[in-house]
């Protein structure tokens, strides 16, 4: 019998075929799709994320783990929709203007989907106005800003300013990316900072509910 722990391990080690097989087995055993996501996939990604943070693994390991999770989500998403599991919150996410890096942003987007967020991914090099427009259009509770470069961090500040000066000023803004810190988050008036994709989910839930 397959277990959530087996699934987590398969995701963590990037064994996508094993992971998909375990998902199929769990479904055949009558396990609820949402439980598979929350208790199998997300903990697996959290575990590899923890190792990444400690420099025990690097970007390639993160990428193959993310691929395993993504492919499992491909099986589960239609079932979640069929089961009437609707996203409770909507998050707009993107890499800020001038920055073309998206690995971290993609990981957070996927983890948010795993936590049953509706995710509107605007991609990279996203202007402040695009963030504001998307938050308005999708009635988002959360806007997530990513930056990999110290050169593009100031674009986080201008984006926060644009949001605060708009008709969606109440939307919660969270920031992240390698050079970003809690101090910077506070300095630019964002609502929250997280150091990695796993804690980004906890923060997102906290902010969306607040």
């Amino acid at each position: 019998m397959s277990t959530f722990a087996d699934l987590s391990k398969a995701v963590e080690s990037g064994k996508r075929k094993d992971a998909k097989q375990i998902v199929e087995d769990l479904l055949a055993e009558g396990t609820a799709p949402l439980d598979i996501v929350e208790q199998g996939l997300v903990p697996g990604m959290s575990a590899i994320g923890e190792k990444f943070k400690k420099n025990e693994v690097f970007v390639p390991e993160m990428l193959i783990a993310a691929r395993a999770m993504k492919e499992c989500m491909g099986i589960l998403e239609p079932l979640l929709a069929d089961a009437g599991v609707k996203p409770e919150f909507t998050a707009v996410i993107g890499t800020v203007q001038g920055d073309l890096h998206d690995i971290g942003k993609n990981l957070v987007a996927m983890m948010l989907k795993g936590a049953n967020f509706g995710v509107v991914d605007l991609g990279t090099n996203v202007s402040p106005d695009q963030f504001v427009a998307a938050a308005r259009e999708h009635n988002a509770q959360l806007v997530c800003l990513s930056a990999l470069l110290t050169t593009t961090m100031p674009a986080m500040k201008t984006t926060v300013e644009a949001i605060r000066g708009s008709d969606v000023s109440a939307v919660r803004v969270m920031v992240g990316g390698a050079p970003v810190t809690q101090a910077y988050c506070e300095e630019i008036g964002a609502d929250g900072y997280s150091q990695d994709a796993a804690s980004a989910v906890d923060l997102a839930l906290e902010l969306a509910k607040s």
């Binding site: 990037g14 390639p60 990428l63 193959i64 691929r67 073309l100 890096h101 998206d102 690995i103 990279t124 090099n125």
Partner: peptide, 25 residues
């Protein structure tokens, strides 16, 4: 480098991922 650690299929995927990051330039 990757072939020392990953299976061929994963290496192909990682190479494609690297190329995808270049696609924005």
């Amino acid at each position: 480098e990757l072939s020392k650690q990953f299976e061929a299929e994963d290496v192909d995927f990682l190479i494609e991922s690297e190329e995808a990051t270049w696609a924005t330039y």
